[in-house]
Computed example of a mutant assay.
Amino acid sequence: MGGFAMVLQKGERDAGTILIVFLDNQDLGTLYERMPDVDGTRKWRVSKSQVIDNKQEFEDYLDRRKAQDRDLWIVELTVADRERFVRDNLSLT
C-alpha cells in the first residue's frame, strides 16, 4: 500500500484525540476524526475537506482545533487509496 506519514501536532500520549489529514495528489487535505454514532460507537468520519479556492481556511480550522485542545494529535498521511486505507486499517468501533 505504501505512503508517507508525518505528525503535525503531538498531543497527550494516553488520552489525546487523534485527527488524520489525508493529502490527495493536489495537496488538498481531507480531515477524518472518530465521531460518536447514535449506537454509542465511534466511527471514523470526514469532518472537514480542503477546497482549492480557499486552502487557508482548512489550515485555520486545524489551528483553531490545536488551540482548543492541547492534547490533540494531528497526523498527516499521503496514501494511494484513502478510502481503502480507512476501511482496512482504522477500527470502525
Rank of each mutant, 00 (worst) to 15 (best):
G11S: 10
G11K: 09
G11N: 09
G11D: 09
E12F: 06
E12W: 08
E12A: 14
E12Y: 05
R13A: 14
R13M: 13
A15E: 14
A15Q: 14
A15D: 14
G16M: 04
T17H: 15
T17S: 15
T17P: 05
I18S: 08
L19K: 14
V21D: 09
F22P: 05
F22R: 02
L23R: 15
L23E: 14
L23F: 02
L23G: 05
D27K: 08
L28R: 12
L28A: 05
T30S: 04
T30Y: 03
L31R: 06
Y32W: 13
Y32D: 01
E33N: 05
E33K: 11
E33Y: 03
M35G: 02
M35H: 04
M35N: 10
P36N: 02
D37N: 15
D37Q: 15
D37E: 15
D37P: 04
V38I: 09
V38W: 10
D39C: 02
D39N: 15
G40Y: 07
G40Q: 06
T41A: 04
T41F: 04
R42L: 10
R42W: 14
R42H: 15
K43L: 05
W44E: 03
R45D: 02
V46Y: 03
S47M: 03
K48Q: 12
K48H: 11
S49N: 08
S49I: 00
S49M: 11
S49Y: 04
Q50S: 09
I52A: 11
I52N: 08
D53F: 08
N54G: 00
N54H: 09
N54Y: 00
K55E: 12
K55H: 08
K55P: 10
K55Y: 06
Q56S: 11
Q56E: 10
F58E: 03
E59K: 15
E59F: 12
Y61E: 01
L62G: 03
L62E: 03
D63R: 15
D63Y: 06
R64V: 00
K66Y: 02
K66V: 12
Q68H: 11
D69V: 03
R70G: 11
D71I: 06
L72E: 07
W73P: 01
W73C: 06
W73M: 06
I74K: 10
V75T: 05
V75M: 13
E76I: 01
E76L: 09
L77T: 04
T78S: 12
T78V: 00
V79E: 07
V79M: 05
D81Q: 11
D81S: 11
R82V: 11
R82S: 08
R82Q: 15
E83P: 02
E83W: 03
E83H: 11
R84M: 13
F85Q: 06
F85D: 06
V86E: 01
V86D: 04
R87L: 10
D88A: 14
N89Q: 14
N89L: 10
L90G: 02
S91W: 10
S91G: 13
